[in-house]
Design a protein around this nucleic acid. Structure first.
Lengths: 352, 352
DNA sequence: ACGCATATTGAATGCGAATGCAAATGTCAC
DNA sequence: GTGACATTTGCATTCGCATTCAATATGCGT
């Protein structure tokens, strides 16, 4: 209290004093004093439904502009318990599909006046340490495109922080999520490959703990089984170019080398294509067809033109954001999974 | 005042009430009560150099663990004027070199217990609106890998917020920055191309407002001029694959088509290579040499193997973080530019 | 002109933690 | 046992804003 007692800058008017390097930012009290009203009035001016007389509002706004006043987000958050911050977990930013997701998420959240607290997971990063930070910062919600184990999910739930998973699943717990229906996509691709006469399939899968990777692998194998094709060789990669390339080298060693390689990601498909062409001396798609999944940008480059399924990133991120905001408003909303089907990208890497 | 007057939950002990979906987080008062000490004592326990008796500390820590107490970052920030937040501006996340930079920055900052407030700029995004948010959130500093105009830089300086620019320049203002010495890199590339006998050069530059782009263009032209080569055709792209591809189409129309194309970024080089191969029917590097700059991952893929200069991203981001932290500690530090030279990447896209 | 409903306003309080200051306690020398 | 001094501790205040509550002002009907 005793704001009126501050005299240090009383005479300077608009020229704020600069102690050392930092300007003391104007507070609502400063604005109030200049406008000749109370601090409450200033607060009400900046609140959405504040009860304020038009004349007063004008005075306040004038003073606020003069002082360059902006409500302090920290103080605001502390008292309203709303930070307008959303934590975004994302893994392997260097894996080409995620940057697009992150960019879209960021855009969508920013459009709704929400800031992104980024947690980019590196291989070594201890998620629990990061979650610690999340608690401390009182984020309003979390969007995770990174893998969280059941215990972590449980912790988040215990803290009462809304979360939406992006292309991930969370074990037993029913957790809100958006999801690209990989099964439908892979079925589409397999059907087309079958229709074109391919019979000797191989799959380049992802790590076992990748939900999307596994769904794609299983859907592919299931569809092939339906068509009477069994014992399809599977190699696991880690979604990297190198792993895709190595995978085909492995597969080529088999008794009956494949004539169709289904990769569960575009980057691995690109690696596979290069592996076929440069390591095995095969022509793609003449000798062997390679298909991918995601629809990331490099997959469209002329040298590859990967036949693939494009995830509807924009719609998916929009859904994730929408679901999260809904649950921030009303935490009692039930979990829900929104599924999206991708679009077939013809490409040139498969003989169809 | 009158903290002792609180009786609402006096009898509940450790069992926190759960209003609806959110658990009321334990505060330092809760911990204090349970440990039988004052709130100040709790605070001192969690402060680095807090004066606290070992016995007391133990009691407090026990209570804190029991309640799952974590100091509230908001309240902490409000009073210490330190948010441990750094705003990171980054543009065109989809442009393949930035994700790597962002991932590294994030890692380095996280390692130092600082959180990243991400501002991913889209073409349309109004930087001034984002800066507005930056003010409101009291970030401790800014790292910008996005273009800021002089006025924006001036605003940041006026607010007394330390900033470090990443591969950017800021007009008149002397602003701390880290920088990859593009000039040295381009000279290296040009020298090698010259030594290999190339004489008909062309440059695929970036937009005029790109500092790195311009430095690379100018350095290239300057070196060529030193070697007596003038009137080198220049086409501008926007760092995208498509623009690189289109650029070579344009250049090929010239009277004397080039035998060496210097692209100021790897992605454009990739586009250029594909343009040469698929649009013009030229062989790279037999018919024409293409070199890039950056050292981004796809540039290493077998189909391209771009001859290039790799930016020392890790060292550069480390320097950016270090410079920023230094200036957060001591805002009076003078501006400084740290320059890094990239390493030559042989590749296969140039006949050397 | 008077009573009452409605619209504005300001004083006071609290969000959760850090910290200056003074009080309390402990330690040691003599 | 006493005083000087170092170590711990708690009280009270503060950060900047939102919000409750009571007070004041305004408008209306009659």
């Amino acid at each position: 209290m005793a704001k009126s007692g501050k005299k240090s800058d009383a005479g300077k008017g608009a020229a704020a004093p600069r102690p050392f390097g930092g300007v003391r930012r104007a507070t609502s009290y400063d604005v109030a004093k200049l406008a000749g009203v109370s601090q409450s009035a200033v607060s009400r001016c900046f609140a959405p439904g504040g009860s304020i007389a038009p004349a007063t509002r004008e005075k306040v706004m004038k003073a606020a502009t003069e002082l360059g006043y902006r409500p302090n987000a920290l103080a605001q958050a502390l008292i309203t318990r709303r930070t307008n911050l959303v934590a975004v977990f994302i893994s392997r930013l260097t894996n080409l599909h995620y940057p697009e997701v992150l960019a879209e998420l960021s855009r969508q959240l920013t459009d709704r006046d929400i800031r992104v607290l980024l947690f980019a997971l590196t291989a070594e990063s201890e998620i629990d340490l990061l979650l610690e930070q999340v608690w401390r910062h009182d984020v309003d919600g979390i969007i995770s495109a990174a893998r969280l184990d059941d215990e972590q999910i449980a912790g988040i739930r215990r803290h009462g922080i809304p979360i939406v998973l992006y292309n991930r699943t969370a074990g037993e717990h029913l957790t809100p999520s958006v999801w690209c229906d990989s099964a439908a996509g892979e079925r589409d691709l397999v059907d087309r490959l079958l229709a074109a006469g391919h019979r000797r399939f191989a799959v380049v899968a992802g790590p076992q703990d990748s939900a999307v990777g596994e769904e794609r692998r299983l859907a592919t194998l299931a569809r092939l089984a339906e068509a009477g094709i069994h014992d399809v060789p599977v190699t696991r990669g880690d979604f990297s170019y190198a792993s895709g390339r190595e995978a085909v080298a492995t597969l080529a060693g088999a008794a009956t080398p494949p004539d169709a390689v289904v990769c569960v990601s575009d980057v691995m498909a690109i690696g596979a294509i290069d592996g076929c062409r440069f390591d095995l001396g095969l022509k793609v798609p003449e000798d062997v067809s390679v298909v991918g999944f995601d629809g990331s940008e490099p997959a469209g480059w002329m040298s590859y033109q990967v036949t693939s399924i494009r995830q509807p990133v924009r719609r998916m991120t929009a859904a994730a954001v929408e679901m999260l905001l809904e649950r921030i408003e009303d935490p009692t909303l039930p979990a829900e999974r929104r599924s999206f089907v991708g679009a077939f990208v013809p490409g040139q890497s498969a003989r169809l």
